[in-house]
């Protein structure tokens, strides 16, 4: 009970984000399914922030964690950069097709 009380704000936050995430794409036409998937994939790369936060805590002499953390930052960046660039290319393809 105490746990719920302390984290009530977080529960509200999660529930509202959940509905917002569903509502905001509810009317997507089938042609945009793949670009939307790709764009959402790029947004999930926000986990990069977590990788940067964790690099703060790693001791500069702990080489294993430094390597793993660097790899995590690299993967997160690839997810974001690649995701947005690929989405951009897909969408560019659409407009040339129409014109």
């Amino acid at each position: 009970m105490e746990f719920i009380n302390q984290n009530l704000d977080t529960f509200y936050f999660i529930a509202l984000c959940l509905f917002l995430g569903i509502e905001v794409i509810a009317n997507v036409p089938a042609i945009l399914h793949t670009p939307l998937m790709s764009g959402a994939n790029a947004i999930s790369g926000v986990i990069l922030i977590g990788a940067i936060i964790i690099m703060l805590k790693v001791e500069p002499t702990d080489y294993l964690s430094l390597t793993l953390g660097g790899l995590a930052v690299l993967l997160g960046t690839l997810n974001i950069a690649g995701g947005f660039f690929v989405t951009g290319r897909m969408l560019a393809m659409f407009s040339t097709k129409k014109k």
Binding site: F13, G21, A40
Partner: peptide, 21 residues
Amino acid sequence: VYANKIMIAGGIFVGAAGLLL
């Protein structure tokens, strides 16, 4: 874990939108 709101929000947007998609 990190009490970072943008990660929670971004993650849940993608989770919810991805599931609907």
